[in-house]
Amino acid sequence: MRDLVIDSHQHFWKYNSEKHSWIDDEMAIIRKDFLPEELKTVYQENKVDGCVAVQADQTLQETDFLINLASENSFIKGVVGWVDFRADDIDEVLEHYSQFPVVKGFRHVVQVEADHNFLLRPNFLKGISKLEKYGYTYDILVFPHQLGAVLEFVKKFPNIKFVIDHIAKPYIKDGFYDGWAVLMIEIGKCPNVYCKISGMITEADYKTWDYNQLEPYMQLVLNAFGANRVMFGSDWPVCLVAGNYARVKEIITTFISKLSTQEQAAIMGNNTANFYNL
């Protein structure tokens, strides 16, 4: 029997030009609805057993939308929703979501915040501190210039499990590596921080990327976090801008083929199951 393959990172949406304004002209191919029925077929074709659905809009309605989809589709094993951690009623909001076991954690789109130190704002930190009480995880979505703040941030909460989305979006297209690598190594020393190997092909040139260009980034992440704190993620449907599901999965399976079968199983599903308590 093969080990379970769990996609640690994908999105659903009913396309709305205002809500999804981040989908620019270069990404026009994903200006449409993406719902579980379509992904289910993709998963059957690619031997993927389940997924974690991650927020793509910063509203409580988005969190409720994902909970609803999960209740109707058993392959959605967990939900990473959105809440406003700066809100005065954050405790009540988290208390409310604790009645839905499928909600595993939360995310804020920090990459769009103009303040490099957004994660370190007192009101945000106060909200994040409440996660421990409920056993929730937190997905860190940032650009490389925000990694200094990430390092300070994760050190403040040694009992909360964090995961860095999309290897912190290094500018692969421009060959940006060294500054990103130094900070990722430091962050990897924190045992409560994991990393998703996802979202790489959309940080490279959509049309001309190749495996050799991505490998050094994956190798650094593996060295920094180890095989037990790295997870496979597709970033479907965003990945369709620069490839397809099969290619994204193949990048990871090719890269980890040199590892032991146990380590491969960890990266392709077991780490995600453990991290999110699926």
Results as ranks from 00 to 15, higher is better:
residue 73 N to I: 07
residue 73 N to C: 08
residue 74 S to F: 09
residue 75 F to W: 10
residue 76 I to M: 06
residue 76 I to C: 03
residue 78 G to T: 04
residue 78 G to L: 03
residue 78 G to C: 05
residue 80 V to M: 01
residue 81 G to D: 02
residue 82 W to D: 02
residue 83 V to I: 15
residue 85 F to M: 14
residue 86 R to T: 15
residue 87 A to R: 13
residue 89 D to M: 01
residue 90 I to A: 11
residue 94 L to W: 04
residue 95 E to H: 09
residue 95 E to M: 03
residue 96 H to V: 06
residue 98 S to W: 02
residue 101 P to A: 05
residue 101 P to W: 00
residue 102 V to T: 08
residue 103 V to S: 04
residue 103 V to N: 06
residue 104 K to N: 02
residue 106 F to I: 09
residue 106 F to T: 11
residue 108 H to K: 07
residue 108 H to Y: 08
residue 109 V to L: 15
residue 112 V to G: 11
residue 112 V to M: 11
residue 113 E to Y: 10
residue 114 A to Y: 00
residue 116 H to N: 14
residue 116 H to K: 14
residue 116 H to Q: 13
residue 117 N to C: 02
residue 118 F to Y: 15
residue 119 L to W: 01
residue 121 R to G: 05
residue 121 R to A: 11
residue 121 R to D: 02
residue 121 R to E: 14
residue 121 R to N: 07
residue 122 P to W: 06
residue 125 L to V: 04
residue 126 K to D: 12
residue 128 I to Y: 14
residue 128 I to G: 11
residue 128 I to T: 15
residue 129 S to R: 04
residue 130 K to D: 00
residue 130 K to T: 12
residue 131 L to I: 10
residue 132 E to W: 01
residue 132 E to Y: 06
residue 134 Y to I: 00
residue 134 Y to Q: 01
residue 136 Y to G: 01
residue 137 T to D: 00
residue 137 T to K: 13
residue 138 Y to R: 03
residue 140 I to K: 08
residue 145 H to M: 12
residue 145 H to G: 04
residue 146 Q to M: 13
residue 146 Q to R: 10
residue 147 L to H: 13
residue 148 G to Q: 12
residue 148 G to W: 02
residue 150 V to A: 07
residue 151 L to W: 06
residue 151 L to I: 00
residue 151 L to M: 03
residue 156 K to H: 08
residue 156 K to Y: 05
residue 157 F to R: 05
residue 157 F to V: 06
residue 160 I to A: 09
residue 160 I to Y: 10
residue 161 K to T: 09
residue 162 F to H: 07
residue 164 I to G: 06
residue 164 I to T: 08
residue 164 I to D: 04
residue 166 H to V: 06
residue 166 H to P: 04
residue 168 A to R: 13
residue 170 P to H: 13
residue 171 Y to S: 11
residue 172 I to F: 10
residue 172 I to W: 06
residue 173 K to Y: 09
residue 174 D to K: 15
residue 174 D to E: 15
residue 175 G to P: 12
residue 176 F to R: 05
residue 178 D to A: 14
residue 179 G to H: 05
residue 179 G to N: 12
residue 180 W to M: 12
residue 181 A to W: 10
residue 184 M to F: 11
residue 187 I to T: 08
residue 187 I to G: 09
residue 190 C to Q: 14
